[in-house]
Amino acid sequence: MIWDTPGKLSVSAWERVRLVPYWTGRAGRQIGSLAGEAEVASYAYERPDGSGYYRETKAGGIPIEGRILAAATALASLCVQRPWRDAFADDAAESLLMAEAAAGRYDVDVARALLNKSRSIKTKLPPAPLASLLTERERDVLRWISHGASNKVAAQKLSISPSTVRTHIESVFRKLECSTRAAATLKATQLGLL
Rank of each mutant, 00 (worst) to 15 (best):
R143I: 00
E100F: 10
V141F: 11
D107L: 10
D90M: 09
N116P: 04
D90P: 06
L125E: 06
L125N: 02
P127Y: 12
S146Q: 11
D107Y: 11
P129K: 11
A113M: 08
M98L: 15
H147V: 00
K117V: 08
N151Q: 13
W144Y: 15
A101K: 11
A155H: 01
L133Y: 10
L134H: 03
V110L: 01
R143C: 04
K122T: 05
K152W: 06
D90I: 07
R143S: 15
P126S: 04
A131L: 14
A155R: 05
A149E: 10
E136C: 06
S120Y: 07
S118M: 10
G148H: 08
A154H: 00
E100Q: 14
S118L: 11
A111D: 04
W144A: 10
F88N: 10
G148A: 11
V108C: 12
A155N: 02
L133D: 09
L134G: 04
N151M: 09
D86S: 14
A111W: 02
D90A: 15
R105Q: 14
G104P: 13
V110S: 04
S150C: 06
S120F: 01
S146V: 07
N116H: 05
E136M: 07
A89Q: 07
V110R: 00
G104M: 14
D109Y: 10
